[in-house]
Design a protein around this nucleic acid. Structure first.
Lengths: 232, 232
DNA sequence: CGGGTCGTTGAGGTCACTCAACTCCAGTGG
DNA sequence: CCACTGGAGTTGAGTGACCTCAACGACCCG
C-alpha cells in the first residue's frame, strides 16, 4: 500500500492541533480501503475490529431493531471519524455502516487505539469533542421527536442534511448523495408515505424539488420558517 | 473547605485506573457544594463555568424548547460525572440541571479541565467512555421513539430508571427519587395524561404501584415482556 | 423488455393528544 | 387545628394527525 498523502487529511478535525510529523506517523499505520456502493463497512453486533476516517463518498449508518425495522443514525461525510466503538468502550459495533456511493476510508485496527491515544494525547481530546457533538445531535433529535409534529421534523432534517452534505447549485442546495424518502422517514420516525406526501406538497409550493433518490432545497429560508414553527 | 475523603469517590468510574495520589490531587482542586432540593446546579445557555461529580442526591437534567416545553435528558445518580460541556467543546451548557432532592456535588472550574487531562491522560479516556455510553443511551431513545408505541416506551423507560436508580424493597423495586408522571412523559415523548392512564392500567394488573411522585415496579419480568413487545 | 426499486396518492382506521372536570394530598399560614 | 392553595394525579369524551392498507405509475438496470 502506497503512503497516504498528508494533504488528504489536512482538514480532518480529528487531527487538528497535531504536529505534521505526528499526523504522518498516524497515517503510516492506516490502510486505505475502497468500499463499493452497497457494501457494508461494518455490521451491527460484529466485533469492533477497526476504526475509520472517511476520505471519499458517503455512508449510511443505521440500527436494526429486533423486529427488522431500520433507524438511520446518521450519514457520514468525507473527513469524518466513524466506527469508534472501541474508543467508547464497546466490544461490538452498535450499528451498521453501508456505502451509499463508492467510498474510500482510512482504516486503523482497533487494537492500535490505546497506543495511539497514549502517544498522541490530542487524539483523545479531539475524539471526545467529536463524540460530544454527536451526543448533542442525538439529543436534538430526541427533543424534536418529543415536541414537533412530523412536518417540522422533516424540515429540520432536510436543513441539517443540506448543511452537512449540501452542494450549492444555481437552483438551490442539492443533497450530495442518493437519499430515498424511506431514508428520510427512518431519520424522522415516520413512514415513507408521509414523507412523500409532505415533499409533494412542498414541491408544489416551490420549496423543494425532488427526483429519484434526489432532494434539492429551493427555498431554504421558507423551509426554515416551517421548521421553526410558522403555521403557514 | 475541609479535604475530601478519597473513599467518597472510590467507585466513581471517571477515576477508574488512576493512582490514589492522582485522585487525591484531583480532589484537592475540587469544591464540595450543597444544592438544596429545587435549586439549579446549572442552567441551559449559561456559560459552562464548571464541571461536576454528584456525590449525593439526584438531579433532573432537561432541555427547554423555544416554546417552553421541557424534555428530560436524564436523571443524574450519585457517582456520575455531569456538566462536561467544556470537555466536549461547548462554551455553554446545553441543558439545565435541577436537584430533585437535596444534593451534594464535587465542583471543578472548567478552566482546570485542559490542565487536568494533560496531567492525567486516563481522565480523557474515561470521559470519552462516559460520553460514549450516553451517546448510546440517546440513540436507544431515538430508536424507541421511532419504532415503539407509547406503552412500550414507558415500559422501557421505567426499567431503565429502575436499573439506574432502583432500590430493592420487599414488594418490588422502588425508583429512588421523587418522579412525576409529567417527568416520565417528558422522557418518553408523550403527555402526563397518557402516562397516568398507562400506569393506572398497570397498577390494576399488579405490575406497578404508584403514589404521589413515587413509582414502584412490582413485577419487572412482566414489564420486560411488555417492553419487548408481547401483546398482552 | 421484464423485474425490482422508488415514488405517488387515495381511503379508512386508530392511537394518542387535547380539552375538561374532578379528586386527593402536602404544605402553608392564620 | 383547620381552611386554603396549588401541585399532582385520575378519568372521560371528542378529535385529529398520522399510520396502515392498497393500487398504481415511473424509472433504472441487466
Amino acid at each position: 500500500m502506497a503512503g497516504i498523502d498528508r494533504s488528504l487529511v489536512a482538514d480532518v478535525p480529528i487531527f487538528a492541533g497535531l504536529a505534521p510529523e505526528q499526523i504522518d506517523k498516524l497515517l503510516q499505520e492506516a490502510q486505505s480501503v475502497r468500499y463499493p456502493k452497497g457494501t457494508n463497512v461494518f455490521q451491527q453486533e460484529e466485533e469492533a475490529h477497526s476504526f475509520f476516517v472517511l476520505l471519499h463518498g458517503h455512508l449510511r449508518v443505521f440500527k436494526l431493531t429486533p423486529d427488522g425495522q431500520q433507524v438511520v443514525v446518521r450519514f457520514v461525510a468525507p473527513g469524518e471519524l466513524f466506527g469508534v466503538a472501541m474508543a467508547i468502550g464497546r466490544k461490538t459495533y452498535p450499528a451498521t455502516a453501508t456505502a451509499v456511493v463508492d467510498s474510500i476510508a482510512l482504516v486503523w485496527p482497533s487494537t492500535a487505539w490505546p497506543r495511539l491515544v497514549a502517544t498522541h494525547p490530542g487524539l483523545a481530546v479531539n475524539t471526545l469533542q467529536t463524540v460530544g457533538r454527536r451526543l448533542e445531535d442525538a439529543h436534538t433529535r430526541v427533543v424534536e421527536m418529543s415536541t414537533e409534529e412530523v412536518e417540522r421534523r422533516i424540515a429540520h432534517t432536510l436543513l441539517r442534511l443540506a448543511q452537512q452534505a449540501g452542494r450549492k447549485i444555481e437552483a438551490g442546495v442539492q443533497i450530495d448523495f442518493p437519499i430515498t424518502r424511506q431514508d428520510v422517514a427512518e431519520m424522522t420516525g415516520t413512514t415513507l408515505h408521509t414523507v412523500s406526501r409532505v415533499l409533494s406538497a412542498w414541491e408544489s409550493q416551490g420549496l423543494v424539488a425532488g427526483g429519484r433518490q434526489r432532494i434539492m432545497i429551493r427555498d431554504p429560508h421558507k423551509l426554515l420558517l416551517l421548521a421553526e414553527g410558522a403555521h403557514d
